[in-house]
Design a protein around this nucleic acid. Sequence first.
DNA 1: TCTTTTGTGCTAGGCATACTATAACATAAT
DNA 2: ATTATGTTATAGTATGCCTAGCACAAAAGA
Lengths: 123, 123
Amino acid sequence: MLIEIDFNSDEAIYVQLQNQIIMGIAMNLIQEGDSLPSVRQLANTVGINMHTVNKAYSILKQEGFIQLDRRKGAVIAIDMDKARALLEMKAQLRVLLARGRCKNISEEEVHALVEEIYDEYGR
Amino acid sequence: MLIEIDFNSDEAIYVQLQNQIIMGIAMNLIQEGDSLPSVRQLANTVGINMHTVNKAYSILKQEGFIQLDRRKGAVIAIDMDKARALLEMKAQLRVLLARGRCKNISEEEVHALVEEIYDEYGR
DNA sequence: TCTTTTGTGCTAGGCATACTATAACATAAT
DNA sequence: ATTATGTTATAGTATGCCTAGCACAAAAGA
């Protein structure tokens, strides 16, 4: 799984890491049980500091996407707290859809976007 | 329109201002042509610095939600760049839905959330 | 056993951003 | 004339991001 960092982005590096890993899981590029590269290895290949990767991994662990095992490294392990996930998604959707509604984006257009994105997950 | 700031939030104050104003427009609490309070007045009632409000207003202007008139203050004026708005929404939806998919949130559940939120806009 | 690699912890510095605090100015409303 | 407006400028503090270096115990590989 390829990870690319945009150093000119205003998004923090560790956030970019988080998002790409999460999207990698969603797209099935990495699956439950698979290991991520070690903090030092990923830091090296991407060209950033070890602690920055460690920060991304720690948050991913705290949010229930991976588990950190001293032997296997960072292993994909989803903690299925669906109720919580739904609440968080709704809160974020609320501000996202509000922006869209101001710009005259209809509910149907949002549904279409959601469908398009779920289609990207394939089969 | 009531604005409330959570000073313990990790979200920047000016971002909280932005989001609440945008959601206010989406909910029709304020409409096209209405004026927002002046930077000094809002800063005073909320209990923050004038420049923080000014920052929020400036970004809202740049993003095409309001226009700054020296006479009328900050006036709601939507710049309808729908194509751009759709692109931005899709990019943000992509990471949001990926998080959900990892937590086993189905496409149907997302559609339901979208419907619930649009229902909040009412009639 | 020896070596390497792992996660984890600590301290420290540079840098950018967020927020506050003053001050000043021209313009417009009262 | 007085007041309130948007705007700009400077400065200080606090916080967060990123890097850097060092250290340690645990595990893996030789």
